[in-house]
Design a protein around this nucleic acid. Structure first.
Lengths: 335, 335
DNA sequence: CTGTTAGCGCATTCAC
DNA sequence: GTGAATGCGCTAACAG
């Protein structure tokens, strides 16, 4: 690979001049500019990103820590960010946190070692204090899935409590009172918040919360299947199941059908997230729309504005999810 | 962030010695090693990845070009690679090719600019010649979704033809002869190969290929829905639908149900890929298992072996997908 | 408008 | 075992 030096020799100018035409950092006489460009072309020259980063102390890349690379949920967030950033020629460096503290810290560190200009963090295990310290130490980052009161400007909040609330409320509004709940892993803030919303809706409707009707899953379809099976077998009076995400709702639906019950005639089901496939399940899943892609985009814009000084409209206000009515909810029938 | 220089001063040794303890590149007296390590710890020193890469001319990172960041298909490939590479402390730099030639070339170039030690490429638009040139120019890369005869050592082949073949054969074996086919975008090699397999199965069974029963989709659920609708409305004699991927199969199922038909009693459906959700749809989708995660892992091992000189078992032989029988296929009923 | 010079933070000879 | 010196490829003052 050709270097800037070779280009400068071929074009018979100095290193600095070549650098100038590459970065458009100062006026260059049209004639010499053309000579340089021709030389670059002739040599197939491409700037060495690494060297540029070292010399300029900026990498034009933003790091993104995501729990896992698979799954439609994280994929669309990443995709949202990527599309926004690429327009500004910023690159995304993705690292997985695997939902455990050590890996998350490693991911953040390695992103910093690489001199990422900013970080977008979707964390699950690292605790607030660590992040408050991180903010103090001057690291530029935006949190996409939680709100920390001490550093609100670093958070894009999503109102999970509200989401959990309207999900259960949708069931209650249809007349359900015996509602099972399959939560996500409760040490994850989102799971905990969604459950809070569920309880709030019950309380508001004067329905006592029944701990037996709550099962803690792990956001995977398989756990939805298993827990729904347990719930259904032990509590035949249940007429509805609220699930903390769509995947678990799919699993729950399978368990329901396996018992010869129909959805929504016998059991109503509501999910959460509104992932891509939920419009294509059978029955089409009623769920809470969680604006994953938009959050990814918003995080990217936050970075563009706050780190790269671009002019963007960004709000770190709390975004509210909303109900998407489809076919998996009906009024309870007499049993 | 502390630099190696500050560490050397605090430990009262030379830069070189610090570098040696960091990289374990030569013998260092235990005593001085400890002094250096203490100094590093005290300063919270972390090596500057960028500087290391520039000086050593290797980045310990492998670039991965993927069509899109969203979608469960690519997600699990990436995840497979990431898990393997992280064990060897190699990082993954992911870039999206967006299924068009310019973006794919840009992605490759930007990965090379970053001095990625190796590339894993999942391309859709770039033509063979470009890749043959790339191989000649000494770039280390492995192709994960296509086979190019001229550079077999750079390809991890998947037998898509065979997959398409066994999918349709599964239908034929159940007694179907009137089989609609919803393909992927036919300019993509995988889509084309799967269709080839479909035709081969028909031919082998002595069933003439009917061009009216073939519709070209785009691998998205929505296209499966639309095209199945057209197929069903125009050709009521069809008893089965083969789809080039699971997403389109989901869409097709919706179209079928909308017409009051049941799956598999009235219409059998088979998908392709066996993505995570297909075990949880209703009916559970019969499909062709495409070992996405394994391919990602294999590509990573190829890199570890061929680029980093590690000892790994790697075969670039053609991997064959296989049939996963679930509930969306039955024998055709009289109409 | 253009050239010279000095680093960026580190790895890597080559001496001692 | 350890230190001094050189350079990776480029940017960024500073002159001119």
């Amino acid at each position: 690979m050709a270097t800037i030096k070779e280009v400068s020799e071929l074009a018979e100018v100095s290193l600095a001049t070549v650098s100038r035409v590459i970065n458009n950092t100062a006026q260059v006489k049209p004639h010499t500019r053309i000579r340089v460009e021709e030389a670059m072309k002739k040599l197939g020259y491409r700037p060495n990103f690494i060297a540029q980063s070292l010399a300029s102390n900026k990498s034009n890349t933003v790091g993104y820590v995501v729990p896992e690379l698979h799954g439609s949920f994280f994929g669309s967030m990443l995709s949202g960010s990527e599309h926004i950033l690429r327009k500004s020629s910023k690159h995304l460096f993705i690292s997985a946190g695997h939902s455990n503290q050590q890996d998350e810290i490693n991911a953040i560190d390695s992103l910093r070692d690489r001199r990422c200009d900013a970080l977008i963090l979707h964390l699950e295990a690292i605790e607030d204090d660590y992040l408050i310290e991180l903010a103090k130490s001057g690291v530029k980052f935006i949190l996409v899935n939680r709100h920390i009161d001490a550093i609100p400007q670093h958070c894009i909040g999503i109102n999970n409590v509200h989401g959990g609330y309207i999900a259960t409320k949708a069931l209650i509004d249809q007349g359900h009172t015996n509602i099972g709940y399959i939560s996500g892993s409760l040490w994850k803030v989102d799971a905990e918040e969604r459950l809070q919303g569920h309880k709030k809706a019950l309380q508001e409707a004067g329905i006592p919360f029944n701990a037996d009707w709550l099962k803690e899953g792990d956001f995977q379809a398989a756990s939805g299947y298993e827990l729904a099976s347990i719930l259904l077998d032990n509590h035949p009076t249940l007429t509805a199941l609220a699930c903390a995400n769509d995947e678990m709702a799919y699993g729950a639906c399978n368990a329901i059908r396996e018992r010869g019950l129909s959805i929504p005639e016998d059991i109503s089901v509501i999910g959460f997230d509104d992932i891509e496939f939920s419009a294509f399940t059978y029955p089409r899943l009623t769920t809470i729309h969680y604006p994953t892609r938009e959050i990814g985009e918003m995080a990217a814009r936050w970075v563009l504005k706050n780190v790269y000084g671009q002019n963007h409209e960004v709000s770190t206000e709390i975004v509210s999810p909303y109900l998407v009515k489809r076919d998996s909810i009906a009024s309870p029938t007499e049993k």
